[in-house]
Amino acid sequence: MSRPLIGVTTSRRSGWRIFPLVQLNLLLAGGWGVRWVAGRPSDIAGVDGLIIGGGDDISPDLYGGELITSARLDPERDAMERRLVEEALTRNVPVLGICRGAQMLNVALGGDLHQNAYGVYTASRHYWTILPRKRVNVLPQTRLSELTGTQPMHVNALHSQAVNTLGDDLRVAARDSGGMIQAVERLRDPFAIGVQWHPEHLFYAHRQRSIFRALVEAATARRESRTQIAAPDVAAT
């Protein structure tokens, strides 16, 4: 059987250098990616899984917030990715959200964001680096903990926004030391996890590769009409 095909959304500005890293992780996990950018065709019916990649900020127009002057927006990308997430969940296609993608997963499911996350979570250390310097605590009894374990992880950080109110069927899977949400996950099929960091840059770490492997396994299960995740357990707090 051919490798599961994963649609990967990227920024028009930086996707040319990010997509190869995502593709590497997918190859290591047994999948294959196809790059999607706003303004070009992107059909969820043609793939087995979906990755919403990092990059631009999400417009507060999508969740009724007020624009801050520092935001860097791409409304066309916002529209494409929101559509893709909604279609993926309708068609039982598994989703992985990376940084912006975690935020888009939350917004597409009816949640909202902190636009100035570090202004709200003043105890969270503000890193801006692809190096694994930020400490993240994975919550027990979550899907993410089944993949990575519950030992604290050191990850990179390239974000100014973060999840505020959770979207439907989502729960918190990780927080940083200041309490800011660092990962969210869906409670039922299809599989969907969003992480606030960039695991594609950390391909040398087996716990980060396990996130991509879980997506590819869910895509394979969907292709074979099998359950992607087990029945929901007690939600983590």
Rank of each mutant, 00 (worst) to 15 (best):
S2R: 15
V8G: 05
T9H: 01
T9A: 04
R12M: 11
R13N: 11
R13C: 09
R13Y: 14
G15Y: 01
P20M: 05
P20V: 01
L21P: 09
N25S: 08
N25Y: 03
L28Y: 02
L28H: 03
A29C: 07
W32C: 15
G33D: 07
P41V: 14
S42D: 13
S42A: 15
D43G: 05
I44D: 13
I44S: 14
I44Y: 14
V47S: 14
D48S: 05
D48T: 03
G53I: 07
G54V: 03
D56L: 04
D56H: 03
D57A: 03
D57S: 01
S59W: 02
D61V: 00
G65K: 10
E66W: 02
L67D: 00
A71C: 08
A71M: 15
A71F: 07
R72C: 03
D74E: 14
P75R: 09
P75N: 07
E76T: 12
R77I: 04
D78I: 09
A79P: 09
R82M: 15
V85C: 03
A88K: 11
T90R: 15
N92T: 00
N92V: 00
G97I: 09
I98G: 04
C99V: 00
C99K: 01
L105A: 06
A108S: 12
L109N: 02
G110C: 01
L113F: 04
N116K: 06
A117L: 11
Y118L: 09
R125W: 04
H126Y: 06
Y127H: 08
W128V: 14
W128L: 13
T129R: 02
T129L: 03
L131H: 09
L131V: 04
R133P: 02
R133K: 13
K134L: 04
K134W: 08
V136Q: 10
N137I: 06
V138E: 04
L139A: 06
P140C: 02
P140D: 04
Q141T: 03
G149E: 02
G149Q: 01
Q151G: 11
P152K: 00
P152H: 06
P152R: 03
H154E: 15
H154R: 12
V155E: 10
A157I: 02
H159W: 07
S160E: 10
L166F: 15
G167A: 14
D169N: 15
D169A: 13
L170F: 08
L170W: 08
A174N: 02
A174Y: 02
D176R: 10
Q182K: 07
R186I: 09
L187H: 11
P190Y: 08
G194T: 11
V195M: 08
V195C: 06
W197A: 02
E200C: 08
Y204R: 09
A205F: 02
A205P: 01
A205V: 04
R207P: 10
R207Q: 07
Q208A: 03
A214M: 05
L215H: 05
A219F: 02
T220R: 11
E224K: 09
E224F: 12
E224P: 02
R226Y: 04
T227Q: 14
A230G: 15
P232Y: 01
D233P: 04
V234A: 15
T237A: 05
T237Q: 06
